[in-house]
Amino acid sequence: MRVYGLLEKPIDSHLKKSRTRMRKYVLRRLLLFIPTLIGVSMAVFTLLRIIPGDIAALILSGPSGELTYTQEDVDELREEMGLNNPIYIQYLNWMSELLRGDLGNSFVTKLSIGEQVRRQLPITMQLAFFSMIVISVISIPIGVLAAVKQDSAIDYLLRSFAILGLAMPSFFVALLVVLILSVGLHWSAPLGFVSLWNDPITSFQQLFFPAIALGFASSGLLVRMTRAQLLEVLREDYVRTARAKGLAEGAVILRHAVRNALLPVITIGGTQIGFLFSGTVIIETIFNIPGVGRGLISALNSRDLPAIQVYIIYFAGIALVSNLIVDLMYAWLDPRIRYG
């Protein structure tokens, strides 16, 4: 899933650069964003309503399915949830509330889901931010080094490390990190999450290892991209010219090659944001961070249907928006793109 950043946007060099076409492309891309979003919401809504079994009964039986309830309870809840209406009415009701900014109330807490997401979102943002730092710190130097030492033992070693990040399920990395820290170093992160602004030191302690675990999993792609881009750039004429001028190899690489190689890497890195956020689902649960990802898991566990659908749409929305931004940036950066 992380491997195809470029592949999905094939380059077609037959088409020429054209400002009007660019504008048309941007407009079209923006317009298509809306039906896609509607499609996504319909897909989520339908999916969560074809769950086998009676949703009301599922909710009433509790997270572990042990609670007892009467048929009266079930009927009451069905009525409350509007489950007796046809599905398209349910969808339209839900959409109209959504458009009025009302994300509905959780079945568990009875509190507004909107508020819940607003509380959790900044937390996940902080984790994602830290992870991006980790990813940059891990992947760019490693990618550069691997390219410079192409086909050497160091290259293979570094690439293996990057691919290992892709090969380990993130929850497995997370469990190992928690276990090693607590058993080996007698350390675990302070409990009770605090935000970066309120208490930067505690917050850093709480986010450091989750960001490493998340970043490790996501950096594999960027390592490989950095390496590939740099290898290509190193063969360009201006690099050859720079070398011919007698510049030191280090200066050539840093001043000329890396700078040019990184632009597409960073752009494509943007497509990873959506996946980074979905990675928080598991990482936040194990590392005890009360963000959106854990919100989704606890909603899943307590069968909090209204919350689940908001969360999934939220994650899809993040991915859609980041893809949109990347597409637009890419079109802007690389005029060879086929506007279609």
């Binding site: 469990l175 928690v178 276990l179 820290l181 607590s182 058993v183 007698h186 350390w187 675990s188 302070p190 409990l191 009770g192 649960t285 194990i286 590392f287 005890n288 009360p290 854990r294 898991i297 606890s298």
Partner: peptide, 21 residues
């Protein structure tokens, strides 16, 4: 009394062993 939500059991054990709970 400070009560923390720790949903994952591995994390709970770690929190106990390291004196957080």
């Amino acid at each position: 009394i400070d009560i923390y939500e720790v949903p994952d059991e591995t994390a709970r054990v770690a929190a106990f062993k390291t004196g957080r709970i």
